[in-house]
C-alpha cells in the first residue's frame, strides 16, 4: 500500500509540526508513506474566491506529484474536499479521476481504511473538539446536527482512544468558526465574530486545547486566542493522536 502524504501549503510553511505528526502517526501504524517533494497547494484559495480557472496550474502540479499512489492522505478536510470535488487535468483526466477517488483526510483514512481500533497515544488534557465544516458536511467525517440521522464522529472516535484525554464539545456542536478561506479577510468582521463565539463556547467548557481536523480553522482561532491573550492553545488532531505525554 503506497501512500502519498499531501501536506497543504499553509501547513508546510507555518505548521510543519502537523505534517511531522501525520507522517509519524501513519508510519507507526505500519504505512509506507512518501512525501512528493514538488507539491504546493490544492488550488482552493483561488477557486473559492471565484477564480477556479486560475487553479489549473495547481491542479496540473498536483496530478504530477500524486499520480500512481494507492492512497493520498492529508491532515486537512478542507483541502481534501477541494481535491475530491474540483481536481481536473485536461491532459491526464484519468489520473485526476483516480486521485479524486483515493484522496483521504487523515482521520477518515485511519477509521475507514486502516480501521484503527486502538492507539498508543496519551494526552492528559481537557480538549475541545472543533468540527470543521468541509470535513464534516463535505467528507462526512461526523454526523451533522441539521440532519435526522444517527450520531457519529470519526475524529471523536479516535480521540476517545487517547489515554488521559477529556474531550468536550461546544454548545453549538458544529457551527462554523468563520475562517472560510479568503472570507477571513474579505468579510473580516463576521469572520472574527464567528471565531470569537466558537472560542467562547470552548471557554465555557474550560478547555486547555481546541483541536480539529483542519489547521486553517485552528490558525484562525489561534490568531484570535493569541490576540485575546488567552491561555487556550490550538492543536491539530494528528498531534494529539501522535502524542506520548
Amino acid at each position: 500500500m503506497k501512500i502519498g502524504l499531501f501536506i497543504p501549503c499553509y501547513i508546510d510553511q507555518f505548521y510543519p509540526g502537523v505534517g511531522v505528526a501525520s507522517l509519524e502517526l501513519l508510519e507507526k501504524l505500519g504505512c509506507e508513506v512518501s512525501f512528493p517533494l514538488n507539491q504546493t497547494c490544492c488550488g482552493q484559495p483561488m477557486a473559492n474566491s471565484g477564480f477556479e480557472a486560475m487553479s489549473k496550474g495547481c491542479d496540473k502540479n498536483f496530478v504530477k506529484n500524486f499520480k500512481g499512489f494507492d492512497y493520498i492522505v492529508a491532515p486537512s478536510g478542507s483541502c481534501v474536499l477541494h481535491i475530491k470535488e474540483h481536481l481536473h487535468d485536461e491532459e491526464d483526466p484519468r489520473a485526476a479521476e483516480q486521485i479524486r477517488a483515493c484522496v483521504y483526510e487523515l482521520t477518515e483514512f485511519l477509521v475507514d481504511v486502516l480501521k484503527v481500533g486502538s492507539l498508543q497515544a496519551s494526552f492528559p488534557f481537557k480538549v475541545g473538539l472543533h468540527t470543521s465544516c468541509h470535513g464534516q458536511r463535505g467528507l462526512h467525517l461526523a454526523s451533522m446536527s441539521e440532519l435526522v440521522a444517527p450520531a457519529f464522529s470519526k475524529p471523536g472516535t479516535l480521540l476517545n482512544m487517547v489515554k488521559g484525554i477529556e474531550v468536550s464539545r461546544p454548545k453549538r456542536v458544529d457551527e462554523c468558526c468563520g475562517f472560510g478561506g479568503t472570507f477571513c479577510v474579505f468579510e473580516e468582521a463576521v469572520s472574527v465574530k464567528m471565531g470569537k463565539d466558537r472560542i467562547g463556547e470552548h471557554q465555557d467548557n474550560e478547555v486547555e486545547y481546541i483541536t480539529g481536523v483542519d489547521t486553517s480553522c485552528l490558525m484562525h482561532l489561534e490568531g484570535i486566542l493569541r490576540r485575546q491573550g488567552s491561555k487556550i492553545k490550538t492543536i491539530h488532531i494528528a498531534e494529539i493522536l501522535n502524542s506520548r505525554l
Binding site: 468541509h134 458536511r137 451533522m144 458544529d174 478561506g181
Partner: peptide, 8 residues
C-alpha cells in the same frame, strides 16, 4: 461571497 461555504 458573504458565506464561509460551511454547508449548513
Amino acid at each position: 461571497f458573504a458565506s464561509t461555504l460551511c454547508g449548513s
